[in-house]
């Protein structure tokens, strides 16, 4: 393999790895801009991965799987949001609750539905690679861009949709206004809490799809398969200064790191623990550098 093939290979798998990150970050943007710290992204993703996979395997339909993942995750987000807003509980602690709830409920249900608490692999349809035949053979970037599976393209559309919703819609304007100046929203006769709740549920929706985009292409549900991506998405938003474009860029950089470390593992036989640790390390370094640059 020439270095060029290696590079395009890494790039293509980076775009695939970016899919869940991008979706989770899009979801996290809603809550960030609504003025809340949403640490539940991780748990919401995991719920989306499990319920998305379960529904897809039961119905044999990818679309229904995605939808189920999104709805289940939205429901958990609603519960978490309601506790936070209606009971005026601490958002950080209720976020932990969601993060603990997701792996537990999925384990309990997995045991009861699939008879195992570890990896569940069942035949489900593979996501289509829509452009493979016509454009997949294009040289260089063409190959990279057009070799992705349909969920990746869906994630790009959804991320753009999230940005549109936030900046060009009435709902998005209200959500941003709530984050910027909740008392002004209240003075204008609206309930800031309902916009916060909407933001949380929307973040659940996007995280659910993000989770489904982990389990569906793999054709399996692996316990704890979100493996820190929710946190990484949170850092991406933070480094992206809560702007959609820059957040997406940050997601791409993290995905690139992930894909590179996967390549490195195959190449140099590094123990899997180190490979798993690399995304955390990259995120930590990026967070430290990004914060110190920002504060200057």
């Amino acid at each position: 393999m020439s270095w060029l093939d290696t590079a395009t290979g890494i790039l293509a798998s980076a775009l695939a790895a970016m899919t869940p990150l991008l979706l989770a970050a899009a979801g996290g943007l809603f809550t960030e801009l609504a003025g809340m710290l949403n640490i539940a992204l991780e748990g919401l993703m995991l719920a989306g991965a499990f319920f998305g996979f379960a529904a897809a395997s039961a119905t044999g339909s990818l679309s229904l799987g995605i939808l189920a993942g999104a709805l289940a995750s939205s429901a958990i987000a609603w519960l978490y949001g309601s506790a936070t807003l209606r009971l005026k509980a601490n958002a950080f602690i209720t976020g932990l609750a969601a993060n603990i709830f997701a792996p537990s409920i999925t384990a309990v249900l997995s045991a009861s539905w699939f008879g195992t608490k570890s990896v569940v692999a069942l035949p489900i349809p593979e996501p289509a690679r829509i452009f493979q035949k016509s454009f997949g053979k294009l040289p260089l970037l063409g190959g990279v861009l057009f070799s992705q599976h349909s969920l990746s393209y869906l994630s790009w559309i959804l991320a753009a949709g999230a940005a549109l919703l936030l900046y060009r819609s009435v709902l998005g304007t209200r959500i941003r206004a709530t984050g910027a100046r909740a008392e002004a929203v209240a003075a204008a006769g609206f309930k800031p809490d309902s916009y916060k709740l909407a933001a949380i549920v929307l973040s659940g929706f996007f995280c659910g799809i993000a989770g489904a985009s982990l389990s569906l292409p793999l054709g399996a549900y692996v316990p704890n398969m979100s493996s820190g991506r929710g946190w990484i998405a949170l850092v991406a938003i933070y480094l992206g200064n809560r702007r959609p474009g820059r957040t997406a860029l940050a997601c791409f950089i993290f995905a690139l790191a992930e894909s590179f470390s996967n390549y490195a593992q195959g190449q140099f036989g590094i123990p899997s623990e180190f490979i798993l640790a690399i995304p955390f390390a990259v995120t930590l370094v990026a967070l430290s550098l990004g914060t110190s640059v920002k504060s200057e």
Partner: peptide, 18 residues
């Protein structure tokens, strides 16, 4: 004042009845 940062003056003026 209850002006909302992040929105334009016009968006602030029409806030709630855009």
């Amino acid at each position: 004042f209850m002006t909302i940062p992040g929105l334009s003056a016009a968006e602030n003026i029409l806030f709630g009845s855009e």
